[in-house]
Amino acid sequence: MKEANRKKLGDKDELIFYCCIIALPLLQIAIFYFYVNFNSVLMAFKSYDKMSKTFYWDFGANFSLFWKELTQTSIIIDAFKNSFIVWLFTCVLGTFLSIVFSYYIFKKWVLSKTFKFFLFLPSVLPSILLVIVFKFFVNDAIPGYILHFTGKTVTPLLIGKDSLMPTILFYNVWVCFGSQILIYTGAMDQIAPEILEAGKVDGVSCIREFISIVVPIILPTVATFVIANVATLFTNQANLYAFFGDNVSYSNYTIGYYLFELVNKEGNGKTMYPYASALGIICTLIAFPLTLLARRLLTGKEEA
């Protein structure tokens, strides 16, 4: 009886504690997310009248425009396709390389500290520095050196028809390791030494150790990153604006860049806000189930 009472008391205690600690963050969200963004989301069902500066209800307009752009132009399809490719490279390839690199650092193999320093460097340096330097390299330096040493003229990589997208993809992978490496090496460091020791005694090879011991243990951490990354599928601009400003061909658009352009392109004003909002909602409707699916696949949990 007493035991049960205490447990009940403890439960109540916990509930109060729970409510207390989430109250302030939730209040913050209530004000700075819900209140602030409520109208932005409703905008998807509205149109903008510039003369009276009002958004008026216009239920189907933005969605029918989306349908038209999806079915009768190549803009949306290309943007989806590019977004997916960028995602594949930054999320799948980037994550894979990050895990492998982290393992190298975790094992403290030759130069691992130096490598770690360089892998994280892009996250430390201002992105504008990296963009300027990278742009110079692929557009001026590489063609310059090739011309100097071989006498061959090469189209700058960000200009050439076939080299543009690969170069953009390379850049996005090139700068994506930082935080992942930090988190994964952190997670690997937390693996109990006895487990690895046991493996060693059994004579497990490095590859085996990596695949059978390390990866499964840090999988929850990786899963977290991948899940968070699914969400970036449609928000990633792939640095297109940093490289080209407004001057990007439709065939190279990503959804993230398209959204950015709709809202920020000079001359558009607020007229495309509603359409961008609708496009955002449609993308969320696609990304959310994908995120849940990824979560289910990676963690085996069935939570909503």
Binding site: I22, F32, Y33, V36, N37, N39, S40, V41, M43, I227, A228, V230, A231, T232, L233, F234, T235, G256, L259, L262, V263, K270, Y273, A276, S277, G280, I281, C283, T284, A287, F288, T291, L292, R295, E303, A304
Partner: peptide, 20 residues
């Protein structure tokens, strides 16, 4: 809460700066 965070991360909010 967890699901909500996932949704908001996927949802690009447009033009909320003036209201913020």
């Amino acid at each position: 809460i967890y699901a909500f965070v996932l949704v908001t991360m996927a949802l690009p909010i447009v033009g909320s700066m003036p209201s913020e």
